[in-house]
């Protein structure tokens, strides 16, 4: 039971990540002023969409044999891309980042993505059909990485490969940091949940006494109710 849960989690989360990166690429594609770059990002987005589809298929294959309760938890709803933090509440990266930083971000993340697929590859087995598909995805990521690198050097020739290394180290640390932060947050969350529940209980006890009847609208002209009232 626990095993299937953790397996489903891996495919579920990876599918989210791949879909989010498809949307990020599509956003840059529409944002750029160069038809050539638009084409590059367009094809990159297409790859990421197809990666996401593969992981959703792998998820659905396993979901069929899970209990209904478990399966329900792994039903994908697109807005969770935002609530789970795969896409920022602030908007797509291209809206909040310089293009240069964005390329560096892609450069490093493609490599990091590739390494995380290694783990999944072990899980499904290298020689299985799924294993072959994942190897294909890993080859895509390596290609994306190469493209990003080339792109970066064309547009910023003054930057040397070693400077990209710095970017990469920075992003790796950031990623690790994110993971640690995430783990801490989860820990903190577990710690605080009872407290939150007590607070919710108290607030609930007060809410019980709320009388919302005076805000009823029956018989009223809805166009005459204060435009400033949030209640």
């Amino acid at each position: 039971m626990k095993k299937i849960n953790s397996e489903l989690t891996i495919f579920f989360e990876t599918a989210h990540a791949e879909l989010a990166s498809a949307l990020e690429m599509l956003a840059v594609c529409k944002e750029t002023d160069s038809p050539k770059q638009a084409f590059g990002y367009f094809m990159h987005a297409k790859d990421e969409y197809s990666h996401a589809k593969s992981f959703f298929n792998m998820l659905s294959l396993r979901g069929k044999s899970a209990s209904i309760e478990t399966a329900r938890d792994f039903r994908f709803t697109p807005p969770s891309l935002i609530t789970k933090g795969y896409i920022s509440q602030k908007g797509f990266l291209i809206e909040t980042m310089q293009l240069k930083d964005f390329i560096a971000f892609v450069y490093t993340n493609e490599l990091l993505a590739k390494s995380s697929f290694e783990k999944i590859l072990t899980l499904v087995g290298r020689s299985t059909e799924e294993g072959k598909r994942i190897s294909g995805i890993m080859a895509d990521e390596l290609r994306h990485h190469g493209m990003a690198k080339k792109h970066f050097l064309i547009h910023y020739p003054a930057l040397q490969p070693w400077q990209l290394m710095i970017y990469r180290t920075k992003e790796t640390l950031n990623n690790k940091g994110r993971k640690i932060y995430d783990a801490n947050l989860k820990f903190l969350d577990r710690l605080l949940t009872p407290l939150y529940r007590i607070m919710a209980f108290l607030a609930g006890t007060i809410s019980k006494k709320l009388n919302l009847n005076e805000f009823k609208r029956k018989g009223k002209n809805l166009m005459n109710i204060s435009t400033k009232s949030i209640l």
């Binding site: 949940t193 607030a203 949030i230």
Partner: peptide, 26 residues
């Protein structure tokens, strides 16, 4: 605020079963 309070008020009538929902709302 009205949308928020109506949900909270209803859930508060069914504690502790609704505690998760209440916690989530707050």
């Amino acid at each position: 605020l009205s949308a928020f309070l109506h949900i909270v008020k209803e859930a508060s009538m069914h504690m502790p079963k609704s505690l998760d929902l209440l916690t989530h709302q707050f």
